[in-house]
Every structure is written in C-alpha cells, then in structure tokens.
Design a protein around this nucleic acid. Structure first.
Lengths: 204, 204
DNA sequence: CGTGCTTCTGACCAATTGGTCAAAACAATC
DNA sequence: GATTGTTTTGACCAATTGGTCAGAAGCACG
C-alpha cells in the first residue's frame, strides 16, 4: 500500500515466496494456529529472514488479506447491469466456482478469517464488500422488478452464490470423501448442478 | 465411550462447563489456535483443574467432535423414505437451518475442522457421514427416478443443503455486516429464500 | 471428630512462540 | 580488489505453550 516501490528483484521474489508459503499455512490453520517457523520452513527461508521482509507475523497476514479482497470481488464487479439478467447471474456463478477451483487456499483463508469473527477484515467487509453488494443487489432487484427474472431476495441470492461456490473450496475434503475415491473431479458435476439450480430459481 | 459411568454430580457439572467453554474457544480459533488457558478462563476453572477432568487439550477436542457428529447427522437421519419427497427435503432444509441458528458454535467447530483437512474427524466422515449420505442419496435418486421430484444430482443436492444452511452459522458476521445494522434477524428471510430455491429445483 | 476419597491449586517444567541483534555472507559498483 | 549497500543467519530473549506434581482444601460417612 504505502510502501515505497523500491523493490529489487530479490525482494520481489522472496516476498512472493513468503506470501505463497504463508497462504498455505494461514489458510489451513488460521492466524493464531500458524507459526512463523512453519511459514519459514514452507518458504525455505530462515525465520529472521522472513522478518527482514515483513515486520511481523500479523503484517504478512494483513498483506495477504488486503490483496485477497480485491481479487475476491472481481467476479462480482464484472456483473454487467446492461447484460442479459439470467446469463449475467449464471456467468457470475461460473466465475465464482472457477475461483474456488483455482484459488482454494484464498477461499479458505477468507473462510478462516470470517469464522474467527473477521477481526482483521471487518472494515473491508463493511466497506468495499458491502458497497459492492448493495450496488449489485440493487441491479438484481431492478431485474426482478422489471420481470426479467423471477422475484426473490437479492441479498440472499448473492449469499447463496457465495456459499455454494466457496463450499467446493472450503469443504473440499468432505466433498471428496463423501463422493468416494472413484468420484473423480467434483467440479464438472457441481457446475452442472448449480446451473440447473439457478436456472430454475431465476426462470420467470 | 469406554469411560466408566462413575461420574459424581460435580464431575458432570464441571465436564459440561469445560466442554461448553472449549466449544466457545475451539469454534472460533480452531484447535491449534486455541489455548488451555483460554478455555480455563472461559470455564472459570484453573488450568490444572481442566487437566483433572480431561487428560489433554486434544482429548477435549476429540470429545467435542465425537459428540457433534451424532447430533449433526440427526436432521438427515430423519429424512423419511416413505414421506412425501418434496416435503421431506424441504423439511430437512428447515431442520438444518434451525441447527445453524441454534448451534452456530457447533457448526463453526465442524467448519474449522474441515478447513484444516479434517485430521481428527476423517474417519467419521468416511464412515458414518458417507454411509448415511449414500443411503439418503439413494432414496432421493429413487424419488427422482419415480418422477416424484425433478431429476438432479442427489449428492450435490445434499451438498447444497449443507452449504446453504451452514453458511448462516459459519459466515454469520459477514451476513449481518452486509445486511447492515437495521437488517435484523437474517434467518426468517433465509428460510423463505431457501424454501423458494428448493421448491423450484424440485418441482417436476 | 476422624478417616478416606474427591476436588482443586500454586509452583514448576521443557518446549515453542514471535521477535531482536550483531555480525557474517553476498552483490554491485568503482 | 576495495567499498558500499543488501541479504542472510546463528545466537539469543522474554513470553507463552501444554502438561506435571505434591500437597492443600473440601466433602461424605462412620
């Protein structure tokens, strides 16, 4: 954020390495359950070296979260008020599911933070996230009022999209365990199921 | 489990107190993020006294989880193969949402454990949970084959019920933050939304 | 009251925690 | 090769961790 941009390539490389390792650890054990030694080991660096690049454990976590919130909201930002309502919402579901597939660690990091009461991210939730949600909920409400899609609760519609898509990242081990060993990749079936679900919900 | 049932009333009371306090702490910070001191303080007991009633931190956690899995599956057990398909599934959704409302800590404890890869509960997931899910998925598949409800993927249908209902416990702070201060209790609107969603999905 | 059992605690322990620091190793420029 | 700045580390620190233990306090029952 406010840091000067005087980064050598070594700095860039090591900061990236550290953040990646920290994402591994934090997303699995949460903030308090993770240790600097764990992160250092995962990054292949010594603990004092970590603290050469970041001032503290908390700073690493904060950096991860603030990077996360931006990319996390991107799929929703792309919901186009001028697009075809049904297609827009279904495409949003698809983008969000794709994020769960490609960035499960980020999803779990977020889930961990919310589970703990969002102590380090509440500002962004009540700020950026709420504003964007309000805006898009209004768009959806407009579509409903215009009879373009079936009426339902726009906020809970968005909640349900978040919940259903993130579930396949956050509860991945449960999904795979229940589907069994020869279940294969659960995502294609998930995508088809979610498309059916929301198609029927939105059909006028 | 294997413990003898020689519990005095003091033992019963204190074990209950400890488990309740531990549920508070574990459900928020996960296993590794929680400390015995925290739990002791929450329970109003000294740390050595905790360890008089439970042999270790892990033992408390295991006790909580094994108690949890049973009650957690109850709503699904009650899904009656001989009932009216649509009503049975909608009633299951309602029961599960009720559990999220009444036992949010239990839901978060479970979520925390799954997020960490379910190290202490994988047996129960691949055992009890999978068996019950297989059984009920077969029932639902039967209903679909008989044309009683619209065809869709029975396992992902169950996943979606878990995901949507538990979301209101696990992501409670996010839901309330987005809905705003005068949003009030989110559960009535959630119940109505979910009823609409699944009614439309199941309608033939 | 006294005896025996249950309940509880302060003091303690070794290991781990997040974090510091001086000095060493490295890299780049002249 | 000398000089300067960057990067890395081993040794260390105070605080916290899960857990132990001897004994004190409470309790029930003859």
């Amino acid at each position: 954020m406010a840091e000067p941009q005087t980064r050598t390539r070594i700095q860039k490389k090591n900061r990236t390495t550290i953040l990646d390792a920290a994402l591994d650890v934090f997303s699995q054990f949460g903030f308090r359950g993770s240790t600097l030694d764990q992160i250092a080991k995962a990054a292949g660096l010594s603990k004092p070296n970590l603290l050469y690049y970041f001032p503290s454990k908390e700073a690493i976590h904060v950096e991860l979260l603030s990077c996360l919130m931006d990319t996390w909201l991107d799929p929703l930002r792309d919901l186009d008020p001028n697009g075809e309502p049904r297609d827009e919402i279904l495409a949003y579901v698809r983008r969000k599911l794709e994020m769960s597939r490609n960035f499960p660690r980020e999803s779990r990091l977020f889930a961990n933070e919310i589970l703990q009461g969002a102590p380090r991210i509440m500002d962004a939730i009540k700020g950026e996230l709420k504003e964007l949600t309000d805006e898009k909920a209004a768009v959806i409400q407009g579509w409903m009022d215009a009879g373009k899609i079936a009426p339902s609760h726009p906020y809970h519609l968005l909640f349900s999209i978040w919940s259903l898509t993130q579930h396949y990242a956050d509860f991945d081990v449960q999904v795979r365990a229940v589907l069994g060993d020869e279940g294969g990749d659960p995502f294609p079936a998930a995508e088809q199921y979610l498309e059916t679900l929301f198609s029927k919900l939105l059909a006028v």
